[in-house]
Structure formats: C-alpha cells, structure tokens
C-alpha cells in the first residue's frame, strides 16, 4: 500500500511500496550491468586509434567528395530505372501473395485455426525477420546477380510485412455487415468479397503504398550485394574510391526517396 500509517498516526505517502521500490531499482541496475557488460564485449577488438582518427578522416573524405561528378549522371539513369522497377514489381508480387496469405491467417477468416493459421503465421514471421538485403544476398548466390534477384528479395521481405498488417486489419473488421451479407444467402466467397473486402480496402491501399515507399529505399542498396539497381554503381564507386561519384549517387538516392515519399502520400490521399 502506498499509503501507510506511521507509529505516531500520521499518514505517509510513497509512490510505491518499499518492495516494489527495491524491485524497480534492481531492474534498472540489472539493465546498467547488462549495458556495461555488452559494451565491453563489443569494444573488445575495437582499435581506438581509428576511432580517435575519425574526425580527421571525415574531413579528408568530405573534401574529396565535393563537388559531385555530374557527368556521371548519364550512367545512372538505367540503374535508377531498375531500382524503381525492383521496388514496384517486388511490391506487386508481394501483394499478390500476401492477400490470400492474410485471409488464411486472420482468426476470423482462416479455414482452420489449428493447422492453416500457424503455418501462415510461420511464413509471415520468417519473411519479416530477414531483411531484403539478406534475402538478396541469398538469392544472388542462387540466381546470379541481376534485377530478378532484387525483385524476389523485395517481394520475400514484403510478403510478411503486408500480410501481417492486413490480417490484423481483417481481425478488426466490423462483424455486423458480414453477418448481414451471410443472412442474404450469399456464398462464403461472396461474403468475403462483399462483406469483408470493402471494409479493409483503405487499410490494404495504405499498407501497399507504404511498403512500396519503404521498398524504394531498400532497393537503392540491394545492388551492394549484386542484386541490380543503383546500389551496383555505389558498390563499384566505393571500391574504386571514386568519391565524387559516390556523392552524386547519394544525392540521386536522396532525391528518389523524397519523390517516392511525396508520391505515396499523394496516392494514399487519393485512395482513402
């Protein structure tokens, strides 16, 4: 009890009971210990001379990066186009897989909560846990470098993302209209298309466009592991220490990200 009565009869107020207070401090102390321990493990092999040297290095690279090499732009258009395609086609592919997956996984639409739903959840978690660039690393080894590996990598990562948000939206729908459609004698597929789908279209549109926006960002770096797009140029420019080209590429990436954010905001406004 936070309020207790002292021996002389006055009421004492504390924020927590003393036991809770102790647990509270013990928790923070444990967190502090964890931090100190992990910090020491992490920095065991750190060469502090490099760290101390970093500001000078930064100044040095900074001076070599400016001005950007604008003439390199002519070589960037094609990879930029590839980058946008990887994001767009990957997102479309992911949507095509994620929509049925979401319906199979949502508690209120799954054909079997015992068997199908856990499998769906497993697929979603596996897809979500691995970043696009790691999927790309794996796929480039399997399929060889190129845009196809990039598209599939984007799709594999996005399936889980879209399916998760979508099945949560499906689980939150209003059940009454669904009952009403069922009561008219509609078949289960019609109940899905007329009762449930219209309720989740705003969520669906929002989620897909949001993921496309993220995917543009992701697609810019997939080339670092050989999956096509503007990242390939970034990789080769970094390897040859062509800093002015790196600057140009960073500017292009930044510009693309800003434009895609603007486009996705526009589309979301138009649809919802």
């Amino acid at each position: 009890m936070p309020v207790s009565i002292a021996q002389d009869g006055t009421k004492l107020w504390q924020r927590r009971t003393s036991r809770a207070e102790w647990l509270h401090y013990a928790g923070w102390f444990a967190l502090l210990l964890l931090f100190v321990f992990t910090w020491q493990v992490m920095t065991r092999d750190t060469i502090w001379a490099f760290v101390l040297d970093a500001p000078r290095q930064a100044a040095d690279i900074g001076s070599r990066m400016w001005p950007p090499r604008w003439s390199y732009m002519s070589a960037v258009w094609k990879p930029l186009w590839d980058t946008i395609n990887m994001a767009t086609l990957g997102t479309l592919l992911a949507v095509a897989v994620a929509v049925p997956l979401a319906f199979l996984t949502a508690r209120n639409t799954t054909p079997s909560a015992r068997f199908v739903r856990p499998v769906g959840l497993l697929i979603i978690v596996s897809s979500r846990s691995i970043n696009a660039i790691i999927w790309a690393l794996v796929l480039v080894t399997i399929l060889g470098p190129g845009v196809l590996a990039g598209i599939l990598a984007i799709a594999l990562r996005s399936i889980g993302f879209i399916a998760k948000l979508l099945y949560e939206a499906i689980e939150e729908i209003n059940i009454e209209p669904v009952e009403a459609i069922r009561a008219t004698g509609a078949s289960p597929q019609q109940v899905l298309a007329w009762g449930i789908w219209p309720q989740i279209t705003p969520a669906f549109a929002g989620i897909s466009v949001f993921r496309w926006d993220i995917n543009i960002r992701e697609a810019t770096v997939l080339g670092l592991v050989g999956a096509g797009g503007i990242g390939v140029n970034l990789e080769s420019s970094l390897n040859t220490l062509a800093w002015p080209q790196v600057t140009l590429l960073l500017l292009v990436i930044l510009g693309t990200v800003v434009v895609s954010e603007w486009v996705s905001a526009k589309i979301r406004h138009a649809i919802i």
Binding site: A180, Q190, W194, P202
Partner: peptide, 26 residues
C-alpha cells in the same frame, strides 16, 4: 428470409445501390 439489424449492418464503403443489390447475392 430477410434480416434487418439494429446498427443497420450496411457495408459502409459500398454505395446504396450496391448494398441493396447485396440482397440478391444468393
């Protein structure tokens, strides 16, 4: 058997006509 509900149970994002036509889905 036609059913009428307390909270109307319309599909909000469909038009009036589509909601009415949903009665013919069977």
């Amino acid at each position: 058997m036609g059913m009428i509900f307390q909270e109307y149970a319309l599909v909000d994002r469909l038009s009036v006509m589509e909601n009415v036509l949903s009665g013919r889905l069977g």
